[in-house]
Design a protein around this nucleic acid. Structure first.
Lengths: 321, 321
DNA sequence: CCTCAATCTGTAACCGATTACACATTTAGT
DNA sequence: ACTAAATGTGTAATCGGTTACAGATTGAGG
C-alpha cells in the first residue's frame, strides 16, 4: 500500500505539501504541485480514508436503516439513496433492522463507531437519536422537530377513495395497515374522508402488519370475514395481489365482480393480469431526495424545508371498472 | 465523544491496560479489569473503530457489489449477506454497480480506501480484482481460481426441461438469457440436454438482458416471432409473468393452452393467479453462505470448497398442466 | 533599497486506538 | 531461600493522514 510519506519522498517534498496538493488547501508552488502529481500517478497512490476520517472525526459514509429489504418497496428507496450518494462521493452502509429496535440500536452504535457522517432511516423511528449526527427520516414522518421526507399519504388515501368511487364502488372493504405506522393512519383518514363525503357503504378490515408472508393468509381471512362486497382498497400492492388471487380462485371476475386498487406501484403490478390500478409512491424519488437532504445537512448547505412531502399519483390500469 | 484516554484516566490506569481489557489480550489484573469495566460503564465508552482500523489495516466491514438492487432477486441475496454479517459483527457496505464496470472500479477503490476486509460480488466479475483482499463471487461462477458460490444452473435447466416434458409440452419455446452470463448458459445447456434427450420440438428465443423494464416488450416480441406453441420456459419469473400476461390478453388459457415455467421463485410468483410453477433459487441461502465463506476467508478459517454450488428446486404450482 | 504582505514549505502535534518493550511484582519449583 | 517463569502495568512508537505554526523566499509599493 502506497502512503503519503512515500509519495512525499518520491516527489522530494514533505507530506504537508502532498496533503495540500491533494486537498487544494493552503499554498502550493507550481513546481511542487507538478512533482506531487507525477508521484501520485507513478506510484498509483490512493489516499487512505480511514486515516483522514480519524483526524476529521467524520467520514464520507452515510448509514441507511431499512425495515425489510426483502419487501420490494425498499430496494427502490435504497436505489435512490445509493444513486445520490454515489454521485456525491458518499458510500452507503446498509442496516436491515426488521422493526427490531435492538437491531436499530446496534446499527446506530456501529455507525457512530465508524464516524459515519449522517443517518437515513426508514425504520420505526421509535428510538431517540443522538442528534450529534445529521439524521433524516425516510418514508415516515413524525410530529417533532426532525427532518423527514415522505409521501403525502393523506392525499394517497383520498386518491384511492376517489378512484374506487368513480369506478362505481358500492360496498367497499378498506384494508387498513398497522395504525402504529403514521403513513397507514394518514392513508386511512384520507380514504375515509372521501368515502364519508360520498356517504358510501364501507367496512374496515384492519391488518396489523405489512409483512409479505402474511399476505395470503390475510386475503383468505378477508373473504371469510366479509361475504358481499364489490370493491377492495388494499393496504399495498402485495396485499392487493393476494386478494386478487383469492378472488379469482373463488370464481369472481376482476374488475366485473370485484374491483381492487393497490398502493405503492411495484414492478410486478404492471405485469400481472389484469394490470393492477394503484397509487404510485415515488419510492426512488424519496430515496434520492432524502439522500440529497441529508448530504445538504452534512455539508451545512441551506435546507429549505424540514419536512417534505412528495405527491402520490393514481396509476390507472385494469383492476377498476 | 469518550476516548480510551478518558477511560484510562477515570479508571486510574494506562490506556494500554484499557485496551488489553477491551480485547482480552495480554495480562490484566483482576482489580484493574474491574476498574476499567466500571469506567467504561460510567462513561458510556464506545471504542472508535476508525482508530482501530487505521492501526490494524483492516476493518469489520465487507463490501457487497450488486448488479441491480431493484431487481427483486438481489435484495434476497443481500438479506442473507446482511444477516450473516450482522450475526458475526460485520457491517456491509453496499455498491450498486449496474453492470457498469466503471462503477465497479469506483466501488472497489472506495472499499480499499476504507480498509474493507473482504468483498462479495454478484456483479459481472469482468474486472480482475486485486487479490490483496478476500473475495467471493456471489451467484456467478467463473472458471479460474476464485472463490464462488452459486446455484447449480445446469441442474436448474434440467429440472425446468423435465417439468415441461412431464407436463406434456409438445411445442416448446425456450427463452435463453444473455449468454454472456455463465448462469444463463449453463441453464440453457441443461434445458436443451433434457429436451434433446426426449427428442422434443423446441425453438430458442434469445433475450439479451435480464432488465425488468424490458419484460413486456420482450413478451410481445415472443408472440410475434412464434405463432404456435404450447409451452414456454421463461428466463426468469419476471419474464414469465410478462409472458403470462400477454398470453391471457391474447385469450389463451393457462395452463390449458399455454403452460409456463419460470426461474427464481420470487415472492409474487406465489401470489399471482395462476400460481407460477418455477425453479427456486436459494437466494437467501446463497447470500448467507457466501457471507460465511467470506468471513471464513477473512478470519483465515478453513474453507472446504473454493466453489460451492447450491441446488435449485422445482416448485410446483398451477402454470403447468 | 527597505518594508511588509503574500506565497511556499517543512517540522511536529494530533486524531484514537494497538502493541512492542521494559520494568516490577508474584508465583512456582527445587 | 534462590532462581526462573508467569503475571501485571506503563511508556512510547505506530498506523496514515491533516493542519497549526514557524521560517524562508518572493514580490510590490514607496
Amino acid at each position: 500500500m502506497v502512503t503519503i510519506k512515500q509519495v512525499a519522498e518520491y516527489a522530494g517534498v514533505s507530506v504537508a505539501t502532498v496533503s495540500r496538493t491533494l486537498n487544494d488547501s493552503g499554498y502550493v508552488g507550481k513546481e511542487s504541485r507538478k512533482k506531487v502529481e507525477k508521484a501520485i500517478e507513478d506510484l498509483g497512490y490512493i489516499p487512505n480514508e480511514v486515516a483522514r476520517s480519524l483526524y476529521q472525526k467524520t467520514s464520507k459514509m452515510i448509514g441507511l436503516l431499512l425495515p425489510d429489504i426483502s419487501n420490494p418497496y425498499f430496494p427502490l428507496l435504497a436505489k435512490g439513496v445509493e444513486d445520490y450518494a454515489q454521485q456525491n462521493g458518499y458510500m452507503v452502509l446498509l442496516g436491515n433492522v426488521e422493526d427490531n429496535s435492538d437491531k436499530e440500536d446496534m446499527y446506530v452504535k456501529f455507525f457512530s463507531q465508524y464516524n459515519i457522517s449522517g443517518i437515513l432511516s426508514a425504520a420505526s423511528g421509535q428510538r431517540k437519536y443522538n442528534d450529534s449526527v445529521p439524521f433524516v427520516l425516510l418514508d415516515r414522518a413524525k410530529e417533532d422537530e426532525i427532518y423527514s421526507i415522505s409521501t403525502d399519504d393523506r392525499l394517497g388515501g383520498e386518491l384511492a377513495g376517489q378512484a374506487i368511487l368513480n369506478a362505481g364502488g358500492k360496498k367497499i372493504i378498506v384494508m387498513a395497515g398497522p395504525q402504529s405506522v403514521s403513513g397507514a393512519k394518514d392513508r386511512l383518514s384520507g380514504i375515509l374522508a372521501e368515502l364519508n363525503k360520498a356517504d358510501a357503504d364501507y367496512r374496515i378490515f384492519e391488518t396489523d402488519t405489512y409483512q409479505v408472508d402474511k399476505a395470503e393468509e390475510t386475503a383468505q381471512n378477508l373473504f371469510q370475514t366479509f361475504q358481499s362486497f364489490d370493491s377492495v382498497i388494499a393496504s399495498n400492492d402485495v396485499y392487493a395481489l393476494a386478494v386478487m388471487k383469492e378472488a379469482i380462485k373463488k370464481g369472481y371476475r376482476i374488475p366485473e365482480d370485484i374491483q381492487i386498487i393497490g398502493y405503492d406501484d411495484m414492478l410486478f403490478s404492471r405485469l400481472m393480469y389484469p394490470g393492477l390500478t394503484t397509487i404510485a409512491q415515488p419510492a426512488y424519488q424519496l430515496g434520492y431526495k432524502g439522500a440529497k437532504m441529508l448530504v445538504d445537512l452534512i455539508e451545512k448547505n441551506y435546507v429549505e424545508n424540514k419536512k417534505v412531502k412528495l405527491k402520490p399519483k393514481l396509476i390507472e390500469r385494469d383492476s377498476l371498472r
